[in-house]
């Protein structure tokens, strides 16, 4: 019996942050009160805000519970520092958790998901079944099982879901 929980998430907020020329991650982190990682990583701060490194000088801002003014507030706090673009409707989020979650991911993406390499707080931008994905690992659940979240473009979601269904069925 496979141990895999697939949840399609809703109510989240997602926005891209692109640093202006010469602006450091440190300055962006200070303005938002959360560490802006210089490497692919998921850093969660106060106020339910997380920054996920997606590239040099670019991040995803993520919140589990979005409010109507969420992204405009971000934009105001990063004025002069970065470009902010709301992507909450542009992406779909899926959460994979359970003992078999890593196996499923490992069958799709050509990167190493071994816990020593991809621990809680790790993130990666890569492809699964030719579909662009951003993957990050949240803290383990109460029973110590891993929990991953995967962002895909909304228009690719059906294709991604097909890959996931086939792969999960083969566990």
């Amino acid at each position: 019996m496979a141990d895999l929980l697939v949840e399609q998430l809703s109510g989240f907020g997602l926005a891209t942050i692109m640093a202006r020329k010469g602006v450091s991650g440190m300055a962006i982190g200070m303005a938002l009160g959360v560490e802006a990682p210089a490497q692919p990583a998921f850093c969660r701060g106060e106020n339910n805000l997380a920054l996920i490194g997606t590239g040099a000088g670019s991040w995803f801002a993520h919140t589990d519970m979005v409010s109507p003014a969420w992204h405009t507030a971000l934009r105001d706090r990063l004025a002069e520092l970065a470009s902010v673009s709301d992507q909450s409707d542009g992406y779909m989020l899926i959460r994979l958790s359970g003992e078999d979650a890593r196996t499923v991911l490992q069958r799709g993406a050509a990167i190493d998901f071994h816990p020593e390499v991809f621990a809680p707080g790790a993130a990666a931008t890569t492809v699964i079944a030719h579909i662009g994905v951003v993957i990050w690992r949240r803290d383990d659940d109460a029973r110590g099982r891993p929990k991953y979240e995967i962002a895909t473009f909304r228009s690719y979601f059906d294709s991604f879901r097909r890959w996931l269904d086939h792969t999960a069925a083969a566990l």
Binding site: P40, T54, G55, A56, S58, T125, T126, V127, G132
Partner: peptide, 8 residues
């Protein structure tokens, strides 16, 4: 160009 990664 890392098109399907960090886009750098």
């Amino acid at each position: 160009y890392h098109a399907q990664g960090c886009r750098t």
